[in-house]
């Protein structure tokens, strides 16, 4: 690597279509180290697809993503991007944490095994070391006491906190949150947002797709409003959320309130 890193995440001209529906129509996004970007917008606007293209759960049709100064899924040979083999892609993904709307905890494993599996398999960390770190992380999200439970015995909020601990166990350089609180009962949203807030305070670089406007206002360094596959408006929360320039943004925010 020769150039210094200015952006922890750099997304350029990202395009993605499913069949003949163009979901992303050329997205650019920069997230500086330690910053939090909240992505808001109506459903179907391409927010989740953008997130899933960053860790290449979806393969973009055009454009590229850099995380921590490294191409995700590509290698630069002279001036052309070349797709990389699976193990290189896995190494990139290992440094990008992702939290899903539906938690997606491994149902066949205890909480502790959920958190230790990937460090052991993908990072080759010893079982004792992985367990020690996992317990520290579970303690951080307030769930050390439930390490031997299976996921289906936990509340939604608890499952999502375990999912966050599981992602953090890989010591990622960025975290992606895909509507992490949308599937939760209202009274459980707070505990997950608290964990996310603490994570942002600790200097984690985060991209948060969310409908929690209050959270965005409080935590985001930048708010990105997406509509119909493009970034319609972006800026500090005070501007985008309180004094939106675009009519589309105003309409969306009005419907939320």
């Amino acid at each position: 690597m020769t150039a210094a890193i200015e952006a922890m995440i750099e997304v350029r001209n990202l395009h993605k279509r499913f069949g003949h529906v163009e979901v992303l129509k050329g997205i650019d996004l920069d997230v500086a180290p330690g910053k939090v970007v909240c992505v808001i917008g109506p459903s179907g606007s391409g927010k989740s697809t953008l997130l899933r293209c960053i860790n290449r759960l979806e393969r973009p049709d055009a454009g590229y993503v850099l995380v921590g100064g490294h191409f995700v899924g590509y290698r630069l040979v002279r001036d052309r991007l070349h797709e990389v083999r699976e193990h290189e892609l896995c190494a990139s993904r290992a440094s990008i944490g992702m939290v899903f709307q539906r938690f997606n905890l491994f149902q066949n494993m205890t909480v502790l095994d959920n958190v230790t599996l990937a460090p052991k398999l993908a990072r080759g960390i010893g079982a004792a070391e992985a367990e020690r770190k996992a317990l520290a992380l579970l303690d951080r999200v307030g769930l050390a006491g439930k390490k031997d439970r299976y996921p289906n015995r936990l509340s939604g909020g608890e499952q999502q906190r375990v999912a966050i601990a599981r992602a953090l166990a890989m010591e990622p350089s960025v975290m992606l949150f895909d509507e992490a609180t949308s599937a939760l009962d209202p009274e459980l949203v707070g505990e997950v947002l608290d964990v996310m807030r603490a994570l942002a305070r600790d200097g984690m670089t985060m991209v948060v797709v969310t409908h929690e406007i209050g959270f965005a206002r409080e935590v985001a360094d930048e708010v990105v409003f997406m509509d119909a596959g493009v970034v319609a408006e972006r800026g500090p929360p005070s501007q985008v959320l309180q004094a939106p320039r675009e009519a589309r943004t105003r309409e969306f925010l009005a419907r939320l309130l």
């Binding site: 440094s95 992702m98 149902q107 990937a118 398999l121």
Partner: peptide, 27 residues
């Protein structure tokens, strides 16, 4: 098996084979 299980494994940096063996087949 819920497709989310596979996505969670892949997103953590596991290979497709590891995800199949450790997460999907057991379920």
């Amino acid at each position: 098996v819920d497709p989310g299980q596979r996505e969670a494994g892949i997103a953590l940096g596991l290979t497709r084979a590891q995800t199949m063996r450790r997460i999907i087949l057991p379920q």
